[in-house]
Amino acid sequence: MRICTLTVLTTLLLGTCIFAHAQQTTPMSVEVFPFELEDKSAGAGIIPPDEHDRRYLSESAQVAKDMLARSGRFTVIDAPASDVQAAAPHGLRNCSGCEGKIAKQHGASLALLGVVTRVNRTEHTMFIRILDAETGKPVSVGFTDLRMGANYAWPRSVKWLMTNRILR
């Protein structure tokens, strides 16, 4: 009787471990929205974002997408720009978490928003937030004020945040 009980318990434990492992390896879908620039520099309103700013914002979003996909924990969904503009004409950072609702409409479980705040032409801060699309609650949040480098450094800030805050 004792061997039978031990066999049953071992089988249940093994089955539970296999089920738990299967659940952990199922990638979650995450919609990565275009990164946004919040310009707080003295030139804000005088010097509009240029092609370099747009390029480095795009590269920053791509770094986040690549790192999420490489982690094996996420399936990345791209956000259609028209949907974002229609839902949040003044930026997702100003819509109180509406990116979660948009991601849910696109079938994603999570929503990632990245915001670069330009302090001046050579310093910036960065904020990345991942929301649960169902509840709108934060799943992961990262902020850095590395403040090193102009717009060409934004993708490096994303890499640091993803490595040290978001994907830990």
Rank of each mutant, 00 (worst) to 15 (best):
M1V: 13
R2P: 05
R2H: 10
R2W: 05
I3S: 14
I3Y: 09
C4F: 14
L6C: 12
L6T: 14
L6D: 14
T7F: 07
T7K: 13
T7W: 06
T7A: 13
L9V: 12
T10E: 11
L13F: 06
T16Y: 05
C17A: 10
I18D: 08
T25E: 11
T26E: 12
P27T: 12
S29N: 12
S29T: 15
S29H: 06
E31F: 01
F33M: 02
F33T: 04
P34M: 07
F35Y: 08
F35R: 06
F35L: 03
E36C: 03
E38F: 01
D39I: 03
D39T: 09
D39E: 11
D39P: 07
A44E: 10
G45H: 04
I46P: 06
P48C: 03
D50Y: 02
E51V: 15
H52K: 15
H52R: 14
D53V: 07
R54A: 12
L57T: 10
E59V: 11
E59C: 14
S60D: 04
D66P: 05
L68Y: 01
S71L: 06
R73P: 06
R73K: 12
F74M: 05
A79G: 06
P80D: 09
A81E: 14
S82P: 08
D83P: 01
D83R: 09
A88F: 00
A88C: 13
G91S: 04
L92G: 00
L92Q: 03
R93V: 02
R93Y: 08
C95V: 06
S96R: 11
S96I: 14
G97M: 06
C98P: 05
K101M: 13
K101F: 03
K101G: 07
I102H: 00
I102E: 00
A103E: 06
A103K: 06
A103T: 03
G107D: 07
A111L: 04
A111G: 04
L112V: 10
L113V: 12
L113Y: 01
G114V: 02
V115G: 07
E123M: 05
H124R: 12
H124G: 12
M126F: 03
F127A: 15
I128Q: 01
I130H: 01
I130G: 00
I130L: 09
L131N: 02
D132P: 03
A133N: 05
E134F: 08
T135E: 08
G136S: 09
K137M: 08
S140R: 09
V141I: 11
G142I: 05
L146S: 13
G149Q: 15
A150V: 07
W154D: 15
W154Y: 01
R156E: 09
V158N: 06
V158T: 11
V158M: 00
L161I: 12
M162S: 07
M162Y: 02
M162V: 11
T163I: 10
I166R: 01
R168D: 15
